[in-house]
Amino acid sequence: MTTKAKIELFSIQNKTTLDTSLRNYKGYVMPCEFKNYLDDIEQFEVREDDVWLTGFPKTGTTWLQEMVWLIENNLDYEGAKMDLNYRFPYLEFTPIIQYRLRSVPDEVCGSIPNSVRELANMEERRFIKTHLPWELLPLQIQNGSVKPKIIHIIRNPKDVCVSYHHHGKLFPGYRNTLEQDVNAFLSDTMPYTPFWSNILSYWTKQSHTNLLVMTYEQMKKNLPASIRKVANFLGKDLNTEQVAGLQRHLCFENMQRNKAVNFQPMIEAFKNMKLYKECPGSFMRKGIVGSHKDELSQDIIKIMNTWIAQNTLNTNLKFDEFFVNVTQRR
């Protein structure tokens, strides 16, 4: 059977229907709770000095957030000890966490603040993370009436898919198997999908002078060059010593141990509330390019390769150039 026939058969046999807790908004899958925030996000007042970091979940947004915040804040490592969620808030955090914790009783979770309104009311300079596609961003960004700096990150979707599955296991009550999540990822039935529509919504806008696109793989291959590229985009000039210091801070081992960015306090809180039946793992697991090969079967990899080829066929996103030829496996 040809690879093309296999992906067609796979799609028929494993097509995942949209969960009742999810809905389609402008062509993208989001939790039902998102409807309560859609208007506020569309009408969100953007500021010229905002810095926005965008990317599909598990593409390296946390890593890049830490880099961007430190570059823009003059390498304030003391200030970076504050939790990243406070320094660089997640725009649609509230509907996503409501969705993720839907199996947990309200009295256990307590009230969850409105992340969109909190950001709207923030007086200090804002650093904003979102996984939303271009079509769901504030209208002022979409129509170009306000042009904040936007940095978008993309990553090999095979690594993204596996990492997204393990990310789901961090939340109490998550029962999906890896195969189920691969099915949902390819069937566009998990939050923020379709994957290709999401990343291409930014990729096709690289003519915008306020948008920079980065790849996880290139950051892994040459972190100092990536630091300089981001710094240059932000109008900052770092010397060799400063770049080396930031590189040390951002290395995977240090990020994995850093409680300001590794979400370990959240995991420990869930453990203390006895919400896990088994150890969920960690937010930062491996940080290795190509680690999907350790968990996906060769048949699934072939199917995903065909899916990738089909979705990049009529684009200038050269998959081999950006993802395949950059190897950092240990």
Rank of each mutant, 00 (worst) to 15 (best):
P172C: 06
I150A: 01
N311C: 00
K286Y: 11
K277F: 03
E72I: 03
T189Y: 09
Q218T: 05
E42C: 07
N258C: 04
H208G: 01
K229G: 01
L200H: 02
V162A: 05
I96T: 14
Q242F: 06
N325G: 05
K58N: 08
W203P: 00
F127M: 04
I150E: 10
T130K: 09
R102Q: 15
V162I: 03
K169G: 05
L101D: 02
E72R: 04
L170G: 05
R100G: 01
I150S: 01
I12Q: 15
R125A: 06
Q140W: 09
H249N: 00
V108W: 10
T54I: 12
P105Q: 07
N183Y: 10
I12F: 14
V289F: 03
I71M: 04
K259T: 15
K58I: 04
Q310S: 04
Q43T: 15
D159Q: 03
K271Y: 11
Q142P: 14
D19V: 09
Q218N: 12
A231K: 09
D188Q: 10
D188I: 01
P191T: 09
T315L: 00
Q98A: 04
N305R: 10
M122R: 15
V108G: 04
A231G: 05
P133I: 05
F323L: 03
G168D: 07
T3C: 12
T240V: 12
T94Q: 13
R329P: 13
G281A: 08
Q256G: 01
H152N: 15
D159M: 02
V108M: 09
Y164G: 01
N262C: 03
R330E: 15
V324A: 09
H208E: 13
D39W: 10
F322S: 05
N316F: 03
T3I: 15
P95K: 04
K81P: 06
T17R: 11
V51F: 03
K221E: 14
V68L: 01
H208S: 08
N316Y: 04
S145M: 13
M67A: 08
D159I: 00
W307F: 10
I288P: 09
Q310I: 00
H292R: 11
I267R: 10
M1W: 13
G168V: 14
T306H: 11
L38R: 14
H166V: 03
Y164F: 15
M30Y: 11
F319G: 01
D299L: 14
S187M: 07
